[in-house]
Amino acid sequence: MQYKDYYKTLGVARTATADEIKRAYRRLARKFHPDVSKEPDAENRFKEINEANEVLHDPKKRAAYDALGTNWRAGQEFRPPPAGAGAGAQANGGETTDFADLFANIFDRAFRSDGREPRRGRRGDDHTVKTTITLEDAYHGATRQITVEVPDGVVNGQPRFRSRTLNVRIPEGVTPGRQIRLAGQGGASANGGAAGDLFLELDFAPHPHFTLDGKDLKLRLPVAPWEAALGATVTVPTPGGAVSLKIPPSSQSGQKLRLKGRGLPGLPPGDVIALLEIVNPPVINDAARELYRLMAERLAFNPRLELGM
């Protein structure tokens, strides 16, 4: 394994201040972040940059790292190659050893004298953001490119956010409030641990015809007076396509008719619930007016009878 010059990785001098190291890390992290970078080998470069920053931003770790340039002894002897030499690191009688692993081992022994296991890097924070999908996405399932605003640290005491564009698979049958977990897409660890997770909480865009009730879909279905009175078969929209629905004779406004299994997919699937609404034809001419007059005369119907009126 080659000697890893962390100063060279960040592009700073060995005399760089903490602020210079911080600025260099942020600039390179933005440039090579795998989610946005178009640079070749961005993922490996991003890992190298994080590894270097993990050591150099911490004064104790940096001091231990700098000490390895001479002769460090902590259970074994190790002499790294001179800065910039790029030769293999030799330890344990000539066996080639990865410098980063060896350094981590030496550092833990040197600074953890309490006998406990070396500390692992703290896992990054989980983040939850809301995103809006369509009813059709939930019914059929879909892959959507979604842009979200996620926390990205704190500047001057205020949270900072950045936009991220992700390709997300929407499973069929999801309902409002459901969360989709994107492993490793949350906050980055500040000290080399695993990244947190990003949870997308789903919200639904308003639909022109349907409202959601769990996996059931409610639909306001206008019908003509004669369709409700005499019975009829009408065409009804559903997310899976138009279907026929039988209106029973003597149906009333507010009556519910159920299309079994036509709602959102699931085990069991939801239903489409049609809520009947009788719509009267407008009086647009004398013929229509005469027809209504004859109905009033011959039917003798009192819709307020149950009110005692």
Rank of each mutant, 00 (worst) to 15 (best):
E39A: 15
L217T: 01
V223R: 09
R162H: 06
I278Y: 06
A13Q: 09
L257C: 05
R164Q: 11
D114L: 10
A16W: 10
T134I: 05
N53Y: 15
R169T: 09
T97S: 14
R27H: 07
G84Q: 05
L56D: 03
A296M: 11
A52E: 00
T238P: 02
T165C: 05
E54W: 02
N53E: 11
N167I: 14
G88S: 14
T143G: 01
A91I: 05
R123K: 04
L276A: 03
F107K: 11
S37H: 00
R112T: 15
T70H: 12
I273V: 11
Y6A: 02
P222N: 14
P34I: 04
P59V: 10
Y6G: 02
K260N: 14
G214S: 14
Y7W: 07
K8N: 07
S251P: 02
R27W: 03
E306D: 08
D137E: 00
S113K: 14
V129M: 12
P268Q: 03
R220D: 13
F103C: 04
E77R: 10
M309N: 12
D114F: 10
P282T: 14
P282Y: 10
V236A: 01
F78P: 03
P59K: 08
G115I: 03
E77H: 13
D66A: 12
G196H: 06
R144G: 00
M309R: 13
A104C: 13
H33M: 00
N50T: 04
E20P: 11
A242K: 05
E43L: 15
K215F: 14
F78E: 10
A296L: 09
T131I: 13
H33Y: 08
R169K: 05
F199D: 06
T9N: 02
T131A: 03
L307K: 03
P59Q: 14
A87D: 12
E277W: 07
V148F: 08
D35V: 11
A274Q: 06
Q90T: 10
E117P: 15
E172A: 09
E149Q: 14
L182G: 01
F111G: 03
R120G: 05
A83N: 13
L264T: 02
I278A: 00
A190S: 04
K260T: 12
L276D: 05
R23W: 07
R298M: 02
